[in-house]
Nucleic acid binder design. Structure first.
Lengths: 301, 301
DNA sequence: CAAATAGTGTCTTTTAGACAATATTTA
DNA sequence: TAAATATTGTCTAAAAGACACTATTTG
């Protein structure tokens, strides 16, 4: 840039007022998924049942006071969006070091009664057993909800060059200790026309979930499922450093929502794991070897 | 919600001032990729060479006056983020109906000299031949740049439980008619430590590209490549309604950056396409059949 | 007919799926 | 030793890769 245009630019910037246009508040919402034990162990002779869980926080203030919501909060000046997400997540739940991925921008005009608030939604998979959630106080109450999601195709029209699929999703969120159960219903409409695809999600029933968080959770879930379907390796984020192959298989089965045959499963993931010399202890049956990820296999080329 | 808490909430909202906190301006930037003819046909007896292209706009005002930038602009109140992207894209380039996908949120504090401006970046693949770009004026000048990207591993350290890979990307952007060439250099650092991955991209050399758009373009390119590697079907967005299998193969080869064998390629994509009774005309060699997508194969289950 | 691209057939290798069998531990 | 899970071996089917071949059009 030459000198003239530099000073011209300086002048321009001095006159520039960022307040000339309306600005939104920018927030983040984070969907944290984990695969955890369904409940306390009943039979020591049996393997623990596991379930997909999502982390929610009870809102202590308006709007949606006493409703449940995703952790998250507003961007602070000078902070990159993902750093906002990390900070809020830590403040509200005590989770650090999650690998956050952006899954969507939610900006429908009526999504927040306080005004024009746009949310960038992130998702992360973590091993929930490793986290000590912040203790509940009057202001905070974070807890895990088991998540059961059911898909039901409502309508499908197909022609040579267009199609429309309407799917209804029913999500059950449940926390047994607190005896809370929620039923969320959403409708997704996928339209393909003029060689162009559009997807819309509408909340039909939101129960005790605040804002448009039902929509965010569904989007995050679809993101999780697709990323693991396309690349199995993403599943390791859900596991501790050391794990057994059955644990790994179980986690994968829950997300993919289908059973896998041990022999085939083991063959397939063998390159991603390394055997350690450690073994699971105190189980009422043959103990399994502990494995860890094979980092080399992740980053080879 | 009962009556009391409803009126309590109303009261809260009346007192609530959205101006209590600093807010960012929210912008969108859209990376449009296309696979187009490299230049005018020279030899009618030969197939046209094609290349990956990206759409840029010359900035007519400060900041970065006379630099090239991605199409995009600021969110208007009441508008969802993706609608901003669609509107700006149409206004600046005349493109409609692109399938936009969110690829990242860019909010580094120094990314825009005007102040705190966060950008949600979208990517779309289109068939550039179908678009009549808005004619250039004093204010607008949109044009396609061929994009050549080179990857070079600078450093790799691997241990049992951590790793660091530094990769340098050099991007050449070129428009022959206007005789513009740009060379962009970026460095990507991938670190895996404590069972947790982080990725950072730094611009080393940005040439005539405005803002942090070099970073956005690289991110969008990686997104494009990965989505097509994971699911071939995404490639159809880059093609017109009717296409030959060689065109399809060529497009795929450019993105995946590797050669494919015709027989195997055809077998693999056969379920996604339907033969039409039309044929390519005016070519100096055996004309190819024209195909279109098989929508049924996209949405079967 | 030569050049150039379009399109097919088939063999081999790799990967995925199914299923049966064996191994190890503890109540 | 019975119950429960861990682990391995092998057959089969499907998908991916390699390569040679034939077909069609136009200058």
């Amino acid at each position: 840039m030459n000198i003239e245009s530099f000073s011209e630019e300086q002048e321009y910037l001095q006159k520039y007022s960022i307040d000339a246009f309306d600005r939104p508040s920018l927030a983040t919402d984070i969907t944290i998924f984990s695969i955890m034990n369904e409940q306390e162990q009943i039979n020591i002779r049996k393997l623990q049942k596991k379930a997909l869980k999502v982390l929610l926080i009870k809102r202590a203030s308006f709007p949606y006071k006493n409703y449940w919501a995703l952790p998250g909060g507003f961007c602070i000046k000078g902070e990159d969006v993902i750093d906002t997400a990390k900070r809020e997540l830590y403040e509200e739940t005590n989770i650090q070091n999650a690998f956050l991925q952006l899954v969507g921008a939610f900006g429908e005009s009526n999504r927040d009664p306080r005004g024009w608030i746009i949310s960038n939604a992130f998702v992360a998979l973590i091993d929930g057993e490793l986290v000590n959630l912040r203790a509940s106080t009057d202001a905070w109450e974070a807890c895990w909800f088991s998540m059961d999601i059911r898909k039901n195709e409502v309508e499908r029209t197909l022609s040579e060059n267009s199609m429309c699929i309407v799917t209804q999703y029913t999500i059950f969120l449940k926390n047994s200790e607190k005896n809370i159960e929620m039923k969320i219903v959403l409708q997704e409409k996928k339209v393909f026309q003029d060689y162009h695809e559009t997807i819309q999600i509408r909340i039909e029933e939101s129960d005790l979930l605040a804002f448009d968080h039902a929509k965010i959770i569904l989007t995050a879930y679809q993101f999780l499922k697709e990323s693991i379907e396309k690349d199995t390796k993403a599943v390791f984020d859900l596991l501790p450093e050391l794990f057994t192959l059955s644990q790994l298989q179980n986690v994968l089965e829950i997300i993919l929502d289908k059973a896998l045959l041990p022999a085939n499963f083991r063959r397939k993931i063998s390159e991603y794991v390394v055997e350690t010399d450690q073994i699971v202890k105190h189980v009422g049956y043959r103990p399994a070897k502990l494995f860890r990820r094979n980092i080399r296999s992740f980053y080879k080329e």
